[in-house]
Amino acid sequence: MMKRALVFSLGLALLAGCAAPTRYIDPAADDGPVAMTMDYRDFEKAATDAVEDMLGSGAVHNPNGGRYIMVVSRITNDTMQRIDTDQLTKKIRVALLRSGKVVTTTAVGLNGPEDEMNMAARELRNSAEFDQSGVQKKGTLQAPDLSLSGKILQRNHKVGREQQVEYYIQLSLTDLASGLAFWEGETPIIKRGSNKSVSW
């Protein structure tokens, strides 16, 4: 009995020794293996392509000077994965904000305001408990000029003994005054790998 326990413990210790140690990955220097699913590198590539193209094309340069106000509309996830599309849109928003060309409103959204505090702070109006000089006045919220919408598509194919997974990240930037798409872009991300790897 004692011998069996000793062998079991030794086996466990060996297995623990073989496991890869947990380590930090620096996104600026990551040459690690590629997954068949979408990972952070794919979102970074798509966001970089989109932002550079928006800035390079002049689509986000306000001819009247100043910054455009953008709202994030629907980004449809048409893949087999559970993706939080904020992984993509947040990078684009941050880069556009840093560029000094675009600021994003959190007061408007398809499913209500992104930051509900925009309206909650206004409910303090006429409350005797609050110093009214600090309460937001009527008509101070800014309406958006531009809307960012898009779709992430996935297509799977068998290529010989391998599988090919294609992702297409499609984005549109619509001018809300005219309803015209001022800018559109598509970043394809194509991966080919073992049939055994899963892409969902």
Binding site: P27, A28, E44, K45, A47, T48, K91, A95
Partner: peptide, 9 residues
């Protein structure tokens, strides 16, 4: 000056 990301393309 920061860009979108720091990764190599």
């Amino acid at each position: 000056v920061k860009g979108v990301g720091e990764a190599y393309r």
